[in-house]
Nucleic acid binder design. Structure first.
Length: 451
DNA sequence: GATGGCCTAATTAGGACTTCCGGTGT
DNA sequence: CACACCGGAAGTCCTAATTAGGCCAT
């Protein structure tokens, strides 16, 4: 969501998507069991217009494409898919950023929580109260991460490094702005039924070992996401190889297209259909392909195009009218992959249009924090004594959360819900010159219908 | 006119790739 | 021969902190 918040249009796009796809979402939300793992992606598929395999087999391209395995057909598919990708507009979709990071990467809190805040809390609060002691990342390999010599010159580093999975407590977690790091992208694919195991799959998920079943498709998805139409596996592979040095990935010796995460988010969402291979103890047999349909190298690249709709739009700098400013650019910094839970998706339109006012110049703005967990609130109580000078991020977080608590408390009184976990809808406020302006419901309606 | 606050654009540094390349191995 | 893989080198893109300058109110 935050990635979308840089510009008004993006906000409207997101909002309109949410509304326009309500019916489809409801369909996918039929089963609570499905909600836990699959809703985000089904949700995304509905955004992208790509039908779900189970529910819309008539429209599903996968079925027809899977059968083709000849090299010629693959080539054709590659070309067609590439064309589709290049001709495709993706910004209308809700980004995965918005969808997933929230829960997928911060599961340890028990309640739903947004990752950016969690990180800020975890970084500092641990020193204060140790309230959030559970590690977010599971180190898969004891390999010592080589200390990268920090070549800092006069100014200190302002942009936090990529939140490498093996470094749990480090300032500035998660990608900023629209940035979705490659490793995050891969993790997302691994948690997406549409991509896993079709394009990428776990071969030993507990060890973090995965295989690029369709390296071309993954590379294309990555390239589309990065607005690099020429992206190929060779290029993406170079980026992956850089991850060796940084201790994010390891290469699995002797096995092609097989990599290993040095660490993984603690509560990764594993596609249920993908676990068989590993559970059957055949991680050595990494060359196998998904049981149901061995994908050809370029199979399903047509539906890949549709699938890509679910990824975040190109960086705003490529959009006309984009202006860089500190506040506007920092707004999407805490990319929010809020996974819409059953409650959020089943909310009434009125609830869905909840408008929140900006909370000033806090690093974490309210639209980045749709959910405040009970544990977060408890944590907040522990950090309330902080002063601005100390633990700056925590202090800002506390400021923000404090405001949110008050707001939520007021909201809770108006609802019948006894649930401690409160959900706040993403802000749908236009960003102008770095300021957020609250819109009326009428404005939002017009914005929604504009799409 | 001086001062201070606010805002914005420009500058700057650094991270994360991306691109290209030559080479090796399967 | 195709493909995967490796790693160096240079370049690009993006973000965010800093800085300078303009505007306005007092």
């Amino acid at each position: 969501m935050s990635a979308m918040l840089q510009q008004t249009e993006l906000i409207f796009e997101y909002a309109s998507d949410r509304v326009n796809n309500g019916l489809q979402l409801d369909e996918h939300l039929a089963s609570p069991a499905v909600i836990v793992e699959q809703v985000p992606h089904s949700h995304l598929l509905s955004y992208s217009g790509l039908a779900c395999e189970q529910t819309h087999t008539d429209d599903c391209l996968l079925t027809t494409v899977e059968g083709s395995e000849s090299g010629d057909e693959e080539t054709m598919e590659t070309l067609v898919a590439a064309e589709n990708l290049l001709n495709m507009d993706s910004p209308d979709s809700l980004s995965l950023d918005q969808q997933h990071y929230t829960q997928l990467y911060v599961p340890s809190l028990g309640d739903v929580i947004t990752s950016p805040v969690t990180h800020q809390l975890m970084v500092s609060v641990e020193d204060i109260v140790g309230a959030l002691s559970q590690p977010q990342w599971v180190t898969l390999q004891r390999e010592t991460v080589a200390e990268q010599p920090k070549k800092k010159r006069g100014k200190k580093s302002k942009r936090p490094e990529s939140p490498t999975p093996d470094i749990t407590f480090k300032r500035g977690k998660y990608s900023k702005g629209n940035t979705l790091y490659l490793w995050q992208f891969l993790i997302e694919l691994l948690q997406d039924r549409q991509a896993c195991p079709r394009y990428i799959k776990w071969t030993n998920r507990h060890a973090g070992i995965f295989k690029l079943v369709n390296s071309k498709a993954v590379a294309r998805l990555w390239g589309k996401h990065k607005n690099k139409p020429d992206m190929n596996y060779e290029t993406m592979g170079r980026a992956l190889r850089y991850y060796y040095q940084r201790g994010i990935l390891n290469k699995v010796e002797g096995q092609r297209l097989v990599y290993q995460f040095a660490s993984l988010p603690k509560d990764m969402v594993f596609i249920s259909g993908d676990e068989d291979q590993e559970d059957q103890g055949n991680h050595e047999d990494d060359e196998d392909v998904p049981e149901e349909s061995p994908p050809s190298s370029d199979q399903s690249l047509d539906d890949l195009a549709s699938y890509e709709h679910s990824f975040p739009p190109p960086p705003p700098s490529s959009r006309p009218g984009y202006q860089r400013s500190r506040q506007t650019s920092s707004s999407p910094a805490t990319a929010q992959w809020h996974q819409p839970g059953p409650q959020s998706e089943s909310r009434s339109p009125a609830q869905r249009r909840t408008v929140l006012r900006p909370l000033g110049c806090s690093l974490i703005q309210q639209q980045h924090l749709p959910i405040v967990s009970a544990e977060m609130l408890r944590t907040l109580q522990n950090v309330q004594s902080l002063q601005p000078g100390q633990h700056g991020s925590v202090f800002r977080t506390a400021q923000l959360l404090g405001s949110m608590c008050e707001r939520q408390a007021a909201t809770a009184e108006q609802t019948t819900s006894q649930i401690v976990t409160l959900q706040l809808q993403p802000v749908t406020c236009p960003v102008k010159q770095g300021k957020l302006e609250v819109e009326t419901e009428e404005d939002l309606d017009s914005g929604l219908t504009r799409e």
